[in-house]
């Protein structure tokens, strides 16, 4: 319980940070951490819960981002109105590319998903369909308007991004604690046994991919409207690796671990800006040490305890 009280106190304090004199730079860093957290939470459904090695998440982030930018700049859609389309485009793309590779296991799936992110990036560079603007990308994406409030400043985006992080954590926690989430867990533990016990493993794997991608598409919309300019360089293979790292390092399957991972992988290097490129060296060494001494991640998921119905002496609400 003290943990819960601490959380109740910490959350408002955290949301007040931009007004407590942290400055525009650190506001920007926190926004970036939050954006990666949304992406990593969505990747966590695929990689953490279902245990599928997917290292191409930036592809779906890119699709959502470009869908929003194109609809906004070319057709004048308001940013938030592009959300359903951007999410659907990313989700649909994910299911289409995942369907033929879904049976692959472990490293094999990993290699193909790396291919996906490269194909998307190269397609964007080559101005596919004449809509994506080639290597320069799309400029002049509009600002989002929320109930008449136009989001322009970094602290506005701080609220939008971290509000979305909170919402994602709430929804994905509910998903994890459900028939759907359990199905993914069984698949992660032993896909053959899950299938043999009545879980439609192919369908659930695809659904996990779809949900993770829809969410990455949403994150893309926020990103496009915050940056106002998007280009293929923002959706490289390296972004996918960072997201993969966040989930594995933090503790795949545990949301708090993923959140911690976002701070460590995205936020921490900013503290060591002065060290320039050698910081990557330390970063690499730290990752290696992690994999040797704590391969399950910093905060691995705990065994879930179910509240029972009353007849079993429990308090199922």
């Amino acid at each position: 319980m003290p943990g819960k009280i601490g959380l109740i106190l910490a959350i408002p304090l955290f949301f007040a940070l931009p007004w407590l004199g942290i400055g525009a730079y650190w506001n920007g860093v926190l926004n970036m951490v939050g954006l990666y957290a949304i992406l990593a939470l969505s990747l966590n459904v695929i990689l953490g819960h279902a245990g599928m090695f997917h290292m191409g998440h930036a592809a779906f982030f890119a699709i959502g981002s470009y869908a929003a930018a194109i609809l906004n700049t070319r057709y004048g859609w308001p940013i938030f109105a592009t959300l359903p389309v951007a999410g659907a485009a990313a989700g649909l793309a994910a299911i289409l590319v995942a369907a033929p590779i879904i049976h692959l296991r472990g490293d094999y799936l990993l290699m193909v998903t790396i291919g996906i992110v490269e194909i998307v990036r190269i397609a964007l560079v080559n101005d596919v369909l004449g809509l994506t603007g080639g290597p320069n990308g799309i400029v002049g994406v509009g600002r989002p308007v929320l109930f008449g409030w136009r989001l322009t400043r970094p602290e506005h985006f701080f609220l939008l991004i971290w509000g979305t992080v909170g919402l994602s954590m709430l929804l994905f926690n509910r998903l994890e604690d459900s028939r759907f989430g359990r199905a993914l867990k069984y698949i992660r533990e032993d896909a053959t046994a899950a299938e043999g016990m009545g879980v439609d493993t192919v369908r659930y794997k695809l659904a996990a991919f779809g949900i993770g991608a829809v969410w990455a598409g949403f994150a893309g919309v926020i990103y496009a409207s915050q940056m106002r300019t998007i280009s293929p360089a923002s959706f490289s293979y390296w972004e996918s690796v960072l997201l993969f790292m966040i989930v594995i390092l933090g503790g795949s399957g545990n949301q708090w671990g993923v959140l911690l991972g976002s701070f460590l992988v995205i936020g921490l290097p900013e503290l060591f800006r002065g060290l320039q490129d050698t910081r990557l060296l330390f970063f690499g060494a730290a990752l290696m040490a992690m994999m040797i001494f704590r391969p399950q991640g910093l905060l691995p998921p705990r065994r879930r305890d179910y509240p029972l119905p009353e007849r079993w002496g429990g308090k199922y609400r």
Binding site: R179, T192, A194, Y306
Partner: peptide, 22 residues
């Protein structure tokens, strides 16, 4: 072929899966 890392109860819930629809 149980799911060794998850709880006994959650293992049995796997059997319930195919009779649920949520």
């Amino acid at each position: 072929r149980l799911f060794p890392k998850i709880s006994v109860l959650e293992n049995v819930l796997c059997g319930c899966h195919c009779r649920m629809r949520s």
